[in-house]
Design a protein around this nucleic acid. Sequence first.
DNA 1: TGTCGTTATATTCGATCGGACATATCGTGA
DNA 2: TCACGATATGTCCGATCGAATATAACGACA
Lengths: 130, 130
Amino acid sequence: MHAPAVRFRVDFGRDEAIGPGKIALLEHIGTSGSLSQAARDLGMSYRRAWQLLASVNAGFRERAVTTARGGRGGGGAALTAFGRELIRAYRGFDAEVQERAGRHFRAISRQAHPQVRKRRPAGIVRLSDR
Amino acid sequence: MHAPAVRFRVDFGRDEAIGPGKIALLEHIGTSGSLSQAARDLGMSYRRAWQLLASVNAGFRERAVTTARGGRGGGGAALTAFGRELIRAYRGFDAEVQERAGRHFRAISRQAHPQVRKRRPAGIVRLSDR
DNA sequence: TGTCGTTATATTCGATCGGACATATCGTGA
DNA sequence: TCACGATATGTCCGATCGAATATAACGACA
């Protein structure tokens, strides 16, 4: 393969870290307006999605997502301005990182073994794939 | 905390990925000339260190470390030119990433909760800390 | 007032990861 | 030729992680 992919997470102190998983969850919450729907989209259990979200909301002074129980549709979840800022900062840095990674690892990447294509369980789509 | 830390790993195809753990292992092999000593330095079991090394050596056409059994001192391990290149590429990119991360996450980092200092088991020193 | 879909949370279970431990093997030097 | 210290590799076990499942609470709306 030519362009190596870089996955990274950002550690804020020792309390909270943000990586591709939580960012993808936030993105799906933003597009679906529902935590359970985001979990289904990402192929993860609702419990795990809830734990990830709780971790994000607890890790900062400002919460990234507001949730509501009951009401129309049973409830829902929505990004706050801070949540959108988290996504924007991560994705902006991500684009920079991927672009620059090519130069640093091009030579080494040529030494990597030719890969065998691996499948992902059907029906699971990550925003980061688009 | 002000400057957020970024941890990343580089995926080469689906076969092999290089992250901070393997790089630290390579660095300690380079300075100590021994896989078992590197494992002790990093506070990991010899088994795990050997598995990580085997993974690195198997992931590329060229091996990163040569090993020897028997002989003076019982044997040893040494970086190849490719192994040194792996370290150089990773650390070079690392420096760039850390420097640029500050700008992208400065505002968000101010929203992170004040951290409680956490200790590391005594006697364990990572090259990446220096 | 009852229905509905979602958030919130506890319990249980299986898979996975890595440490601890046990050996076997090797080659130089005493 | 024997001892030594390191590599090489297997087995076992405890901790951890996350999926599966179950259940409660909630509030708008028909």
